[in-house]
Design a protein around this nucleic acid. Sequence first.
DNA 1: CGGGATCCAATGCGATACTG
DNA 2: CAGTATCGCATTGGATCCCG
Lengths: 140, 140
Amino acid sequence: MSVTHTDVTAGPAELEPCGQLDHPDCGIREVLDRVGDKWSVLVIVELANGARRFRQLQRAIDGISQRMLTLTVRRLERDGLVIRTVYPTVPAQVDYRLTETGASLTHLVKALADWSLEHRDTIAHARQAYDAQHPDNEIR
Amino acid sequence: MSVTHTDVTAGPAELEPCGQLDHPDCGIREVLDRVGDKWSVLVIVELANGARRFRQLQRAIDGISQRMLTLTVRRLERDGLVIRTVYPTVPAQVDYRLTETGASLTHLVKALADWSLEHRDTIAHARQAYDAQHPDNEIR
DNA sequence: CGGGATCCAATGCGATACTG
DNA sequence: CAGTATCGCATTGGATCCCG
């Protein structure tokens, strides 16, 4: 069964890895749920610089709670983006590092970071303008 | 340095010297909050194919509520990623299209989509393996 | 040190109803 | 058609305490 084109004044497609990006079976959402998560990205970024231990991560990321770090790092491990290694020392010692897959994501994360830096001022200005024109608006 | 803009929440500082993306004040989070949002990305993706009206977006995206579509599209407009145009026809007509800034994001979104396609199987497999080894785990 | 368990506040988000 | 307003559940996430 192929995709039934729900055409609503169909436009020319410029963007299609699978034909339709928003098709549920393309898996974008799954990845986005991971990549889009603030904490996940920051963990990946930190691990891009090398292996880190739990407390190192927590201190490096600043603002993340113990709970969220645990959850984040667990999910990344589950997705095969991060490897968790436990050393049977006496105070337990654990470190985390990126897998190949995880490392391949750092490109994209860096690209996103670059984009954000590049457009930071523009966006900030747009927000000011919007807020000025919509003083009573509750949109965040 | 032109504008000294007061930010909504605590003041993120200037963006210049770090160049490294793990620094909290680089503004990655702000962008990520937008890009990482599931609905935002899907709206951007849909608009990448051309201008769309409200109902068109809602039907195209499938699963989004009217509330979330409104909020999403408002935030994108506020950030200057989307332009909202109202035509004074009798049933009101509004369309949305990407700004230059918004359009420049589609590259990254496409890259993310490509990445997700490329690593989809790997991730799925990793998840299965993880779940098999941790049957009682509540990590999603 | 690394992390599980619990409690609780905030908010996210869908469903529904109403308006121009 | 394109929203706005309200309610209410579900999820998120921080804080705290405890354990190996």
